[in-house]
Design a binder for these strands. Structure first.
Lengths: 210, 210
DNA sequence: AATCCACAGTAACAAAGGGCACAAACTTAG
DNA sequence: CTAAGTTTGTGCCCTTTGTTACTGTGGATT
């Protein structure tokens, strides 16, 4: 864990801070597909990602979902932080996209470090900025783009995050992430296949050239 | 200006910080409808709102707009802050919705105060949180709601922000904010009028009971 | 082999929203 | 007053997306 922490965060964090994280943080290994945070939960610690990827999504009253963005190595979830600081319930759900290693830091420590370590403070602010920008991208995407383009973007991002040219999801799962219906996804995927951008198989999609 | 500052921010800021703001900040009075920040600009100072309201919007490559949220008394623009800190160009446009009084604080001071004043740090932090939450609302709105509902929400918010039951905008202007077309707005407004929720007049809309 | 089931393909239809065209009402400049 | 411009109302049609229903297929189970 120490080497991983250093490799991932040593450009951000000063040595004493790394030591404290080692002491106070709890290492977790989570397999793909687990919900590590859910809407309505109170949050007592925040995650620092060592490896893997986490998808963050939003849900409305009717249970409709929408993928907001992915968290990757070295990142943390600012929306969660915001909940911690504000003592409010989580506004989002977080699900591991791949097998993931992360360090959970208790929220009290996190606040303490804000005053104590410049590196931490900068990291936290940078995270907020990254999240704000990702959210702006998400808004752009749903406001300005049509489903065709959103689907292509989604597939591209998925390939990047999982580091795998085969997307091992059903059309239904993709539909949930994009907040649309299975039929529509099937239709658009078929169109992309006809354009030779991908090949459809049972339970996975072979990306050729998006 | 001093009284206004105290009235608006004294619950957040310690006295020495208020003094510094008075010394370093530049008071601005901006009439309604002015663009005080635009996409692609570099930003050297950030605004603290004393009174009035500012609308923050996003634009895509084709020039299509979308209202993100309003800033009101006591608030500041975190997206702008993020740009300052990251030394990047502004991602958004900000237009005064009403006549507005604000204090512009140079970005260097802002960074200095981050280490120096706990109150400032908390304020900045809180602002990020508020903006994140507003953006989540915006995402919800465009992802999960249909135009009818979005229009109603828009009108309600407008009444709240301008503190005026008459909305003095053309249908075209509303269409820009909601990223739709004038014809569609006219149609939906007519529907709301038939439901006795408002009265349509030339150049303004009388809100009755949304 | 027979059955079941999850997944995907597809047609047909419905609904929401956008675009165009034109008319009517009102405002402003000359 | 007249002409020109702005704002709004409305009919018609199109595209995109969503919905329903049915089919086929391959894999798993027994």
């Amino acid at each position: 864990m120490k080497e991983e922490l250093l490799a991932t965060f040593s450009n951000h964090f000063e040595q004493p801070l790394i030591d404290e994280i080692l002491e106070e943080g709890r290492l977790m290994e989570v397999p793909a597909g687990e919900t590590i945070m859910d809407i309505g939960q109170y949050i007592r610690s925040i995650p620092l990602l060592l490896s893997g990827a986490i998808k963050v999504l939003r849900e409305d009253e009717e249970g409709d979902e929408l993928l907001l963005y992915y968290l990757e190595q070295g990142e943390t979830c600012s929306v969660t932080m915001a909940c911690c600081m504000g003592q409010t319930k989580s506004e989002i759900r977080a699900i591991t996209e791949t097998d993931t290693r992360l360090v959970m830091v208790p929220v009290q420590k996190m606040e303490e470090w804000m005053g104590k370590y410049k590196g931490w403070r900068n990291y936290v602010f940078e995270s907020y900025q990254n999240r704000l920008n990702e959210l702006l991208q998400t808004v752009d995407s749903i406001a300005f783009k049509n489903l065709d383009q959103r689907l292509v973007d989604y597939l591209k991002k998925k390939v990047e995050v999982t580091n795998d040219n085969q997307i091992r999801n059903t059309h239904q799962e993709i539909a949930y992430d994009l907040h649309t219906s299975r039929v529509v996804v099937s239709r658009l995927l078929k169109k992309l296949e006809k354009m030779k951008k991908l090949e459809l198989h049972r339970n996975y999609i072979q990306i050729v050239n998006l």
